[in-house]
Amino acid sequence: MSEISIANQTWQWHGQSINYQRAGTTGPALVLIHGFGASLGHWRKNIPALAEHHRVFALDLLGFGQSAKPAPGEPLPYDFDTWGAQVVDFVREIVGEPAFLVGNSIGGVVALQAAVLAPEQSRGVVLVDCALRQICDRKLHTQPPMRRLGRPALKKLLQNRALVHWLFHQIARPGRIRAVLRTAYGNPGAVTDELIELLLEPAREPGAADVFWAFINNFDGPLPEDLLPQLTCPALILWGTADPWEPIALGRDLASFPAVEAFIPLEGAGHCPQDEIPEVVNGHLEDWVARQGVAAIAPCHSPAA
């Protein structure tokens, strides 16, 4: 498939500049939401293909990519309430119609949060290796004893802004990023120089280290299992079988919620299947969204007496 250049656009939200892209002119609207430390560029292999039959939108969450990176709390905290509200307003103001929300990693939690905040604006939610947020304090009882005992010390350490800034700058180097991604990707060949630069460019911007500091100190907030029971639209879950960060064995537990129509394992893929095996992910998205359209126009049948 030939590369299609899609220009970045800017949307003002709470006085902050938000970067986004749009492609496609017909079909259902899809909103693609990236994970932690990533940006809309993580969907670069999906947008052109999906745009053939859909109106596709991708945005950089506040604090990431080419979106603004204000100091934490000035004016908004970096948490799921903020990002969920950002997606709700984006769908209302930019998309202009109810959309399918597609999120990878923490983007999955953001998609769920947005769908719960404004159910009338979500036609469906697709979770791609959704973040299970195992660092959350409410999940501490599931962790090994040493990790539970060390949590108070860890939290105190991470509150040290200068130390976390130093850690961030140690991580935000090409060699380190490459090593981290090679552990997260089931397909090491997908870890390209282009991908490394895509992730590093926003990390060089002023404010990026503070975003990192603020987020890793978030030991509270919603879990997928909090939000899925509140979902009023259907959900699809895609999960890489080789994901080392969010193991599929734990991810399968999310399939038990009534809103989840299907849980599809993606053989050999790691934490970011949309970048590793884009054709497979695109195919599942297209098929599922098409089925939702058929279901929406299918005639109703009265239940048997």
Score class of each variant (00 low, 15 high):
residue 281 V to F: 02
residue 209 A to R: 07
residue 302 S to L: 15
residue 238 L to E: 07
residue 2 S to P: 15
residue 293 G to E: 11
residue 18 I to D: 09
residue 126 V to A: 15
residue 23 A to L: 00
residue 303 P to I: 06
residue 89 D to H: 13
residue 111 A to G: 15
residue 39 S to K: 00
residue 207 G to N: 07
residue 113 Q to F: 01
residue 196 I to S: 11
residue 217 N to T: 03
residue 54 H to E: 01
residue 156 K to N: 07
residue 7 A to K: 10
residue 44 R to C: 00
residue 73 G to D: 09
residue 249 A to Q: 12
residue 241 T to S: 14
residue 114 A to I: 04
residue 197 E to K: 02
residue 144 P to C: 04
residue 107 G to Q: 09
residue 26 T to K: 15
residue 241 T to V: 07
residue 301 H to L: 12
residue 46 N to Q: 04
residue 12 Q to D: 11
residue 218 N to C: 13
residue 34 H to G: 01
residue 89 D to Y: 07
residue 286 E to W: 01
residue 94 I to Q: 12
residue 222 P to C: 06
residue 173 R to I: 02
residue 276 E to H: 11
residue 179 A to W: 07
residue 59 L to R: 02
residue 104 N to Q: 13
residue 185 Y to G: 09
residue 91 V to S: 05
residue 201 E to F: 01
residue 82 T to Y: 09
residue 113 Q to N: 08
residue 120 E to C: 05
residue 108 G to T: 04
residue 14 H to S: 11
residue 257 F to S: 11
residue 126 V to N: 11
residue 132 L to D: 11
residue 6 I to W: 00
residue 264 I to Q: 15
residue 143 Q to A: 15
residue 176 R to T: 12
residue 298 A to I: 03
residue 232 T to I: 00
residue 8 N to K: 02
residue 203 A to Y: 03
residue 235 A to T: 09
residue 301 H to P: 03
residue 161 R to W: 04
